[in-house]
Structure formats: C-alpha cells, structure tokens
C-alpha cells in the first residue's frame, strides 16, 4: 500500500479513508419531529452495505443497520427511514416482510395437523390455523375432531386463498386468518406474481376494475385476477345472516362459466400489470386502470408481451401521473 506510484483508478479509492466525513450522514436530532410521519431524511439518499449512516450514538438502530461502537452502518442497499429517534434502512428490493393486517394472497403448500402451511412469498411459510378459518355452518360453530380429519376437503395443497396476517411469530413467520367473507379460497381467475416492493399499500386491496374483472392485490406481490362475481352481501342476504348463509360453496373448486371476452379482459389486465412490473412502476388501483386503458391501443392482447409494448405502456402510465 505504501508504494508511491499508483494508477489513477486505484488511487481514487484509496482516498476513502480521508473522505469518510463526506459519507457521514448529517442527521439533526433537533429537526422537525412529527411523531407520526415516517420521514425520509434529505430526500431519497441511497445508502449501501457498509456505509456509515451516522456516528451519533443518540439514534436508535432499526432494521437494515448494524453498529460498531457508537457508529451505525447500513447493512442493505436502500433509503434511510426515520421515525422519531429510530433509524432504519428500507431495502430497495427484498422478500416480502409480513406485517399484521396485510391482505395477502397465498398458496397452500402443506396440510398439517390443525394448520395449513401457506406460501406467501416471505422468508418462511405462513401458518393458517384451523381455528382461524370460517367453516361452513357459521362463525359460532365449534371445530370438532371430524373437521381436523377433513381439512383437505376445505383447503388442499396447491389451493390459492386470500387472507389477512393475524400475527407474527418471533422468528418472523406469519399467522394468517380468513375470518371474513372477503377472505377465503380463490377461484374463477388467474394468478400472477410481481415483486412485493412494487405494491403500494392502500386501504382496500380487493379492487373492482372496469370490464367486469376483480383484482385481489396481495401486499405480498401475489395477485389474483378473477371474473367479477356477486359477493354474498350484494345478493340481499342480511348482514347478520352472512356467516350462516356461507355454506360449502366458499370452499368450492368449481369455476363458474367465464365468457371468452372476460377471459380476454383478464389476460389484458395480467399483461398490463406485467408491463408495470417490467417498467418497475409501483402498482395501485389508478395505475392498473391507467395501464389497462393504455393497453387498449393493442387490439391483440398477445402483442403486449413484447418488451417494446411493455415499455410503452409503463411510460404512458408514468406520464399520466404527472
């Protein structure tokens, strides 16, 4: 290292030791602190693994950071998020990390004793307890041993369902529940998945889209596009009797008749969402609708698999935003 003559390339980096202060991130603890706001400090600054975030010991270290002595370093490539005195780094990409209350779409991978294992695209498979599903016969119904024996009748390997994250275990795995008529087994549709980082969280994740298609936008990046069907509540069943009316059909595997035009619309939506994924555009309801409308210029849905078409759609959606 002590050699006098070095090439430019190697030299440029050896300065790093001296310029450490530049990398140091100036975070002012006295800065405006709205307790509720998750503020991104200094705009969208990107930190990378091993980068010094702050050498101020007053900050608390959150996810995506580690500390050596008083200094906090980033452990992922992402942006700094600050909540009060808690500093964390949100990775740019990564597996879905479940949070309580998330509406997710998952696939049964295993039927166990009194629980199902569900793939939700997270680090570990989620657990759906027999006690956290609605069984035919109403909410008040007790689960008997015969239910344990016929679990595969309700949900079997490969079945898709939408559910809500009920709790998180200490090792990060999620526990799900489907104790609402808006959750449960999925049918009449098409599955696709996109990176979970592209999903923009909102209050409602079951969307009714123009064209007679529903979209279940799982926060985990698993999506379900299906023919719009009347939910029980819309069929004039009183709200108090909803659960009693829900019979075996909520666990039915039979698809209804789906007309060719609906099938094509579903395919169009799927390709439009893939175009958003291709352009790495965040996905929410207005964007899906915008992408669908932009895709109408392609008469044949099949044309939309071309990269040029995808790029064009993504660009139009972004243009519509501004």
């Amino acid at each position: 290292m002590a050699d006098g003559d070095r090439s430019d390339e190697v030299d440029a980096e050896d300065d790093d030791d001296d310029s450490e202060d530049e990398r140091l991130f100036s975070l002012d603890p006295e800065a405006d602190g709205d307790a509720r706001i998750t503020g991104v400090v200094k705009g969208k600054h990107i930190v990378t693994p091993g980068e010094l975030v702050t050498s101020d010991a007053t900050w608390m270290r959150g996810h995506g950071t580690y500390s050596v002595g008083n200094s906090t370093y980033s452990s992922v490539a992402g942006t700094i998020t600050r909540v009060n005195k808690l500093l964390s780094v949100t990775p740019l990409r990564g597996r879905y990390v479940p949070e309580v209350g998330d509406h997710v779409v998952g696939r049964i991978i295993d039927v166990g004793t009194r629980s199902w294992h569900v793939d939700i695209g997270a680090k570990q498979a989620a657990v759906l307890m027999l006690g956290s599903v609605n069984l035919p016969g109403g909410v008040q119904r007790r689960k008997s041993e015969s239910d344990e024996l016929q679990m595969r009748v309700f949900l079997k390997e490969g079945d898709l369902l939408n559910a809500e994250v009920q709790a998180i275990f200490t090792d990060g795995a999620a526990s799900l529940h489907t104790r609402s008529l808006s959750y449960g087994k999925l049918r009449n549709g098409y599955f696709l998945n996109i990176p979970s980082s592209l999903i923009i969280r909102s209050k409602i994740h079951t969307l009714e889209l123009p064209g007679g298609v529903d979209l279940v936008l799982g926060v985990n990046g698993y999506l379900w596009l299906r023919k719009h069907t009347q939910q029980l509540g819309e069929q004039g069943v009183s709200i108090t009797r909803l659960a009693e009316e829900a019979g075996w059909e909520i666990y039915s595997d039979e698809n209804e008749y789906i007309s060719p035009s609906i099938r094509e619309t579903i395919a169009r939506y799927a390709n439009a969402i893939k175009a958003l994924e291709f352009g790495e555009v965040g996905v929410n309801e207005p964007r899906v609708v915008a992408a669908y409308e932009a895709s109408l210029e392609f008469k044949n849905v099949g044309e939309m698999v071309e990269n040029d078409a995808k790029r064009r759609i993504a660009r139009q959606v972004l243009a519509a935003r501004s």
Binding site: M1, R6, E9, V10, A12, E13, D14, D16, K44, I46, T48, A77, G78, T79, L92, R93, S197, L198, I200, G279, E280, V281, G282, N284, L318
Partner: peptide, 29 residues
C-alpha cells in the same frame, strides 16, 4: 491485491447506487 479489492468495491458500489437511483425514480408514489 487489497488496493485492487478496494477499487472493485467502488466500481460495484457505483453500479448499485446507479441502479438504486433509477429504481427510486420509477417506483416513487
């Protein structure tokens, strides 16, 4: 070799940052 490693870190880091910037520009809500 060590100074070579350090140089490579800078090249890789620059690429990650470049990629990160373009990603942020597109996914921002």
């Amino acid at each position: 070799a060590m100074s070579g490693c350090h140089h490579l870190r800078d090249v890789m880091d620059a690429e990650v940052r470049k990629h990160g910037k373009s990603r942020l520009a597109r996914t921002g809500v």
